[in-house]
Design a protein around this nucleic acid. Structure first.
Lengths: 109, 109
DNA sequence: TTATTGTTTTACTAAATAACGAAATAGTGA
DNA sequence: TCACTATTTCGTTATTTAGTAAAACAATAA
């Protein structure tokens, strides 16, 4: 069966969102922004890596449509604009924890 | 601020789930399996690429804990075991469509 | 204007990972 | 054994990632 090309286009766009979230540092940023916007400097302090590196990851998330930024004086503030990302992340977390438990009990057995 | 290492471990596991979904072909497989299990041959027919390629992508999804398989005679049947993946995928789709609309209206304006 | 702060971008290196097709290798059942 | 379905391995090519350093940029203060 041949898939419609518009379907493929949609899949590519959607996959880009998942790909953007598929990196520990970027996922950490998303969770850090869960409740309120933060400046780049706060994100750098929290994540513990260089500003230039964080800035690159932020631009990936922005391009994917997951974050938006806004200037506040000298600072750039970033905020989450895809609330379902947090929901899905918690769902994945539950599954991951369950798997880790299972793994642990196999190790013990 | 320094992050706990167990937090980092969890982030890595979760990121793996997102990474697994961050590929058009794999996302297509997930949506194809939305309602019922399918054999590899059906997935190959639907996605339109080689079996060896599909098989590898299936193993990525299985390893991430998104799919499970079961043998039925000669065939291997795959099914989705992470229902929230579908929910999140629809949420992302809505956002992607909105962005495409906006893009289109900018192009027209 | 110049200096300072906060951020982004570009450029480069090096290592790791991912993608795909083709061929070899399982498993299962007749 | 043969046919069928699926997985694995191999080799090539491409992409991703981390990291650092330097330059560019934007807004504010002196």
């Amino acid at each position: 069966m041949i898939k419609l090309s518009s379907e493929n286009e949609k899949l590519k766009f959607k996959a880009e969102v998942f790909k953007a979230m598929g990196h520990p540092l970027r996922l950490g940023i998303i969770e850090f922004l869960r409740d309120e916007e933060k400046c780049v400097c706060e994100i750098v302090d929290f994540m513990g890596t260089g500003m230039s590196n964080i800035s690159k990851h932020l631009s990936v998330l922005k391009k994917a449509g997951i974050l938006e930024d806004r200037r506040d004086g000298l600072k750039m503030m970033y905020r989450l604009i895809m609330p379902c990302a947090i929901e899905f992340s918690s769902c994945v977390e539950q599954i991951v924890l369950k798997r880790l438990d299972k793994h642990r009990s196999i190790m013990v057995a």
